[in-house]
Nucleic acid binder design. Structure first.
Lengths: 142, 142
DNA sequence: TATTAAAGGAGAATTATTCTTATTTGAAAA
DNA sequence: TTTTCAAATAAGAATAATTCTCCTTTAATA
């Protein structure tokens, strides 16, 4: 992801391009592990040692408001963020805080077809997100 | 749900039966709307005006530890709790905090069959929970 | 280059939750 | 039934994540 692609995302949404916003959006994309605000700050401080905590939270809110990132649902009272905006699923590790994206068009089709047939009364579905909960098997790598 | 059924749940898990635990577990079951700690306190204070906030949190932790209730994943930094322990799905309203249970064995079968066939490399699935996100249509009720 | 609404910084405030310590109590044992 | 004591509760302080306030700085337009 080139620097210009990131600023274009902001411009497309009518958001001012600032170094802080660039750094935060870039951090979430680069980290690619559904980071917390603290993870993001830690990453950014390498190049922006003076960025304020309040700014990070305000920028995150602005990015969520403008659909450039999404909040990730967790069982912890700490918010995490995801820069992948296409509809996708999440793999949750049940003995760590690891969350992985899971993209699977065959599954999307299966679910879409299922709920086209079997409607939920008085409810309009906007998105279907499967939470796949379990354990990663040890394999030497991550 | 009779009072004795609730105390039996505690006894089965080897937990002491106390009025506070009874009240809290009963509240979550009766409220049946994935309540927050605050919702629970508010409900309980009608009959137990002196229950302590710290007790509520400690009891909730104990109930989660002992698999009598589950934490519910949300995008807010406030925890919610669910007394339905069978594997099931959740309907999330996108313009309110309403969360409904969705039980559907046909869907469970479909998903189970799908992931029996299509494994996720180096991952052992323990539970599959679909988040159905959308809007409830106005119908006069609720 | 000047203008100004929007954005950022710093630290205080808030909110949900956890911790600490003294007191009380459920339930097993006598 | 009474005693015993580990476990549970109450009350309030402490903590952690997040939000707010207010003042300063800056990006983007004129």
């Amino acid at each position: 992801m080139k620097i210009e692609e990131i600023s274009n995302k902001l411009i497309e949404k009518g958001l001012r391009v600032t170094p802080q916003r660039m750094a935060i959006l870039e951090a979430i994309i680069k980290l690619n592990n559904h980071p917390t605000a603290e993870n993001i700050i830690e990453y950014i401080r390498k190049n922006h040692p003076h960025i304020s905590l309040a700014t990070v939270y305000k920028v995150l809110d602005a990015l969520v408001e403008n659909s450039l990132i999404k909040k990730v649902k967790t069982e912890k009272d700490i918010m995490r963020y995801d820069a992948l905006m296409e509809s996708h699923h999440h793999i949750y590790c049940s003995d760590s805080d690891r969350i992985e994206d899971y993209q699977d068009n065959e599954l999307n089709e299966l679910l879409k077809k299922y709920f086209d047939k079997k409607e939920i009364p008085n409810f309009k579905i906007e998105d279907l997100k499967l939470h796949i909960i379990g354990r990663f098997l040890k394999t030497g790598k991550k």
